[in-house]
Write a protein that binds this DNA or RNA. Structure first.
Length: 634
RNA sequence: GGACACGUGGUGUAACUUGGAUAGCAUGCCGGCUUGCGGAGCCGUUGGUUGCGGGUUCAAAUCCCGCCGUGUCCGCCA
């Protein structure tokens, strides 16, 4: 039997609601089922108040025409009789209107530690998403520039959320959308001409710099008209431009993915905008809209010759219309995106052809849509998660609205937009057009951030006396650098805007990623010195009765809440909740071993080793969900 | 003009969806700790009228109404 905080909570709710319905049957009649109210009334109180607590008596007071204190007293008394002999719950008492329950340290501690050891890397995993499939889209960077720190935030969020959902048993599909037909690529095509890559620059870096130069040139030469015609020719099948732009884009994407791989970010499939056209997904989608009479083709007025959709929200001029197909026959971005989303949900009855794009460093295959290739089982999922900047709330809302008006309420509901706040810099923007990402000496790119961070961590690692194998210095420094960057980006609620500053970013003391790694390394060393391995803990016969109401049990409770924390983070798409949990865990662990010597613990030694073992495992599990790797020494 | 997001100690943030006990954590400042299982550490002190004003409630950072500030979006751009 696995007992964790979720189980305890569930039991508490059940016992409480049974007790209430018998003790206050009159009040309950009016209230109906109070299950939800009871669930919401349960919190984890301050240490000295107990392990779980309910404030339900306050809500009951009016109905039962009694004071909250008396109700809490009665309920606590009645509940005490339900305490099972197994001793997971030790006592239930009331205090100023609250009902507080106390867990039995030995019994609960044994359950928690035993299940961590038994489940290992799977401990805290959940089945909440069993049988559900999800497609996650990130970071969808235009292929005309390197990833800057804003794109990095997107990619790290997507990477972490997909890891989290996978740990919750969702069948995940990591997808990247490549916009190879956009204005930005047309501009590249116009201005790049015969330019060769100068020096040994990465191709995405080269394109990004060229793009800034090209934009100035376009303005000087007033070349907007020429670009529009290039844009149109790019969309034509088999045109010279369509082939050339795809070639440039593929080369650029390969360069961008070098960045992704250096951060440990992987995908399953990339979808090219040009393939949405070549595989006729757009045509099918528009036919479907026409058939359902959602789209209209005005014969006169402003939108003559267009295919449009009416929306609920009026814009500043009172217009309630969105153009899907322009009067010149060219589809708008939102039309392509809509067709794409019908495909994601499997509502088109057709799909792409795929070919293998490359093998990723982790050994997994990355597929890409293509004009020729085999049919594979991508798309057609139940949940769609898009990690896109908050500035795209409106178009994402339009997608949802059109789905709804097509009678696809379930899909509309399952279209999730992770609207993360933009990454800003103190002065200026990260604009690709004006080159705001270019800096002096170091750029605001994901590549340069990692490079700078590694420079810093390598210096620290080199001076560390704790590292025995100095051959691994580079590898350790890289993992520490990655943890610092990832933690810094992921610890903040996605919605919040962040302002990037080099000084702050490189300040390791302010970053908790390396701190968590440090705790893991210390735990590892304690275990090494104790001669303990995961397998032989039983041989040491830990005496669970030696768990005290102190830092040890506080730590155990925290370990026991791992699954609860994970499920919440998953339900709300919030990696920052796990970052928060990791900090708590690290702090508790730190104060635990500071106050309770493990190896000199005498009779308590075995159980304390068990606690260290469990902590180390959960640290490892949670860090993996943020994409952070551990080291044994640092 | 309309819609949305954000506003919490000096700084960065958590808790807001589901109202509960003294608003949690980090960082900074100040002070202390090392013959001790790893000092990238630990302990302590300082610092908040939760943007402002009303309302609901036994109880409001949390819910409602009205303001203020910052930002974003509303195109036959993507």
């Amino acid at each position: 039997m696995e007992v964790n905080s979720l189980e305890v909570r569930r039991h508490f709710v059940n016992d409480l609601s049974e007790t209430i319905s018998t003790t206050y049957s009159e009040a309950c009649k009016e209230w109906g089922t109070m299950q939800v109210d009871i669930e919401n009334s349960i919190v984890i109180p301050k240490e000295e108040k107990g392990d779980f607590s309910s404030s339900i008596s306050f809500a009951l007071a009016k109905r039962a025409k009694n004071s909250p204190m008396k109700i809490a007293d009665e309920l606590a008394k009645a509940l005490s009789k339900t305490i099972e002999k197994n001793g997971v719950v030790k006592k239930i008492i009331s205090e100023s209107g609250y009902i507080n329950i106390w867990l039995g340290e030995a019994v609960y501690g044994k359950y928690v530690i035993d299940s961590v050891i038994k489940e290992g890397a799977g401990y805290s995993n959940s089945e909440r998403g069993k049988g559900k499939s999800v497609i996650l889209e990130y970071p969808s960077v235009n292929p005309n520039k390197p990833w800057h720190i804003g794109h990095l935030r997107n990619a790290l969020l997507g990477d972490s959320i997909s890891r989290i959902m996978k740990a919750c048993s969702y069948k995940t599909e990591r997808e990247d959308y490549i916009d190879d037909l956009g204005l930005q690529m047309a501009e590249i095509l116009w201005g790049l001409k015969d330019a060769k890559v100068k020096g040994r620059k990465k191709y995405d870096q080269f394109l990004g710099e060229e793009y800034v130069r090209i934009n100035k040139e376009i303005e000087e030469k007033k070349a907007e008209g020429e670009i529009t015609s290039i844009l149109k020719r790019m969309e034509e099948k088999e045109s010279k431009e369509s082939k050339e732009v795809r070639k440039i884009a593929e080369r650029s994407v390969r360069a961008q993915y070098e960045t992704a791989f250096s951060y440990g970010i992987y995908h399953d499939v990339m979808v090219w905008e040009s393939d949405i056209l070549s595989n006729e997904l757009l045509k099918l989608a528009m036919e479907l809209l026409a058939k359902k009479k959602i789209s209209k083709m005005p014969k006169e007025g402003k939108y003559e010759g267009c295919t449009v959709i009416e929306t609920n929200d009026a814009d500043e001029n009172g217009e309630k219309v969105k153009v899907f197909i322009r009067s010149n026959g060219v589809a708008t971005y939102i039309a392509k995106d809509f067709a794409f989303h019908l495909w994601k949900f499997g509502l088109l009855g057709a799909g792409f052809k795929y070919s293998k794009f490359m093998e990723q460093p982790d050994g997994s295959a990355l597929y890409s849509t293509s004009k020729e290739g085999e049919k594979l089982d991508f798309g057609g999922v139940g949940i769609v998660v898009n990690i896109i900047g908050s500035e795209q709330r409106y178009p994402q809302g339009v997608l949802r609205e059109v789905l709804k008006s097509m009678g696809m309420a379930k899909e509309a509901e399952s279209l999730v937009h992770i609207a993360y706040g933009e990454v800003g810099v103190k002065d200026g923007t990260l604009s690709g057009r004006t080159g705001g990402w270019l800096g002096e000496g170091r750029n605001l790119t994901a590549d340069d951030l990692l490079k700078e961070m590694q420079k810093k961590t390598l210096e620290i690692v080199k001076n560390s006396e704790k590292i025995k194998e100095h051959a691994n210095e580079e590898e350790i420094a890289k993992k520490v650098a990655l943890s610092a960057i990832k933690f810094e980006f992921l610890r903040i609620t996605p919605e919040k805007k962040v302002t990037f500053e080099w000084e702050k970013a490189l300040d390791l003391s302010a970053n908790s990623g390396p701190y968590c790694m440090y705790m893991y390394a210390r735990a590892s060393r304690i275990l090494e010195k104790s001669g303990s391995q995961q397998g032989n803990l039983k041989l040491k016969e830990p005496d669970y009765e030696r768990i005290t109401r102190g830092p040890d049990f506080e730590l155990i409770k925290l370990i026991g809440s791992a699954q609860e924390r994970l499920e919440k983070a998953c339900a709300e798409y919030r990696p920052d909740m796990l970052a928060d949990y990791l900090i708590e865990l690290s702090l508790r662990f730190s104060s635990f071993y500071e106050k309770m010597p493990v190896l000199k613990g005498e009779e308590s030694k075995a159980i304390r080793i068990g606690i260290v073992l469990a902590t180390r495992q959960v640290l490892y599990n949670m860090m993996s969900l943020l994409g952070i790797q551990t080291v044994e020494q640092m």
